[in-house]
Design a protein around this nucleic acid. Sequence first.
DNA 1: TATTTTTGATAAGGCAACTTCACAGCCTGG
DNA 2: CCAGGCTGTGAAGTTGCCTTATCAAAAATA
Lengths: 214, 214
Amino acid sequence: MSLNILLAEDDLELRLTLEEALTLEGMQVCACDSAESALDAAEQEGFDVAILDLVMPGLSGVEAIANLRRLQPGMGVIITTAFATVDTAVDAMKKGADEFLAKPFNLTALATTVRRVNAERQPQPKLADETADKVFSALSNPIRRQALLQLVRHRQLRFMDLCRLVGVEDHTKFNFHMRQLKQSGLIQQNVNKVYFLTTEGQQMCHFLLQEEVD
Amino acid sequence: MSLNILLAEDDLELRLTLEEALTLEGMQVCACDSAESALDAAEQEGFDVAILDLVMPGLSGVEAIANLRRLQPGMGVIITTAFATVDTAVDAMKKGADEFLAKPFNLTALATTVRRVNAERQPQPKLADETADKVFSALSNPIRRQALLQLVRHRQLRFMDLCRLVGVEDHTKFNFHMRQLKQSGLIQQNVNKVYFLTTEGQQMCHFLLQEEVD
DNA sequence: TATTTTTGATAAGGCAACTTCACAGCCTGG
DNA sequence: CCAGGCTGTGAAGTTGCCTTATCAAAAATA
């Protein structure tokens, strides 16, 4: 996959060098000479990662971060500088930078950093793998799905009432499925043994149903 | 579950009779003597079904439907009338009524109709049962989930590239899982055998990931 | 107090999912 | 043209899910 990189660097020679190096690494690069130009470009096109010089005429790289994040929240940001101090590094990270690189830096290392920053900004799975196994395994059975949908309608139900609504004749069979649903974390029982949907169960059911929008 | 009923009937005696009969059927009834009162009530409280007389002083029952649906899109609507004609029935159904009842009607039958109308307006599962079986069964396996997430990131991938990204050593094992995913309808191959997510696959992955909100 | 209903557990067998192994055709690159 | 890589299928064995049968304790009702 070809990463789309937004580069803001006012030094012409360095800008050309960076652009060429990243292109050789298989990335698409949009090179700008100012933060303002970079913001204009970000309004036109989606980017995976932005590489911003800290000090530039006009807006600094750090000042541009908030605007970039407003335009494209998923974009990674790397701040580069020739005069790194602890204060400038901390300030950049506080302002939302994902990485802070002091010049000069190794070009291959830069490409590696870009890929890492991009990977870290990728959306993460909502569910841990073990939980996902249980949740989707629970949902792969029609009896269990039907039980969940009845709990959407009735909010709280006792075991045998739910068993009859779902239409299962053998309550020990139904009990097996209810235990699967409990282990998956989608439902719970209160102290009176009444079943109800957990928060996660409600979210899952919300997704399962095509509900009318207001 | 106790249904919440909004009743609009200008005839006092009939209104009291209906209210009592529905209450005896275990329903919560908010009785109004006009459509305007009913709309006021609907602004204050959620209802499952509205029973509206066709002809009333002020707004008619049919005229109230659009306003009620704007306030509460999921509400069922039953129009009642003493002077039913084909024209008035068609007009009411066109304007969004779920049922049209000519007076006099059997009170027990009314309660049954109310329950049926409510059930029909319940949100329906997005997926047919057979499809849901396949989709959730496909998602219950970690290898298959990982394959989908890689397709989110890379958009299109060839078989062996995807196999290596997911980290499966035996390509015939991986092939089995890819066939499961194809049968579930979450992925497809183009003419060059490159895998990509279907529309349904994209929706499912969108749900699986906790993506940043704008 | 006795009976019925509700809720729950375990074991065993059948069936399906998954893994492993063997094999093969097609495509690409040298 | 040949070798290597890619893509794919089927059979057999292993593992796990689901159903059925049996049993039982607790709670509710008459």
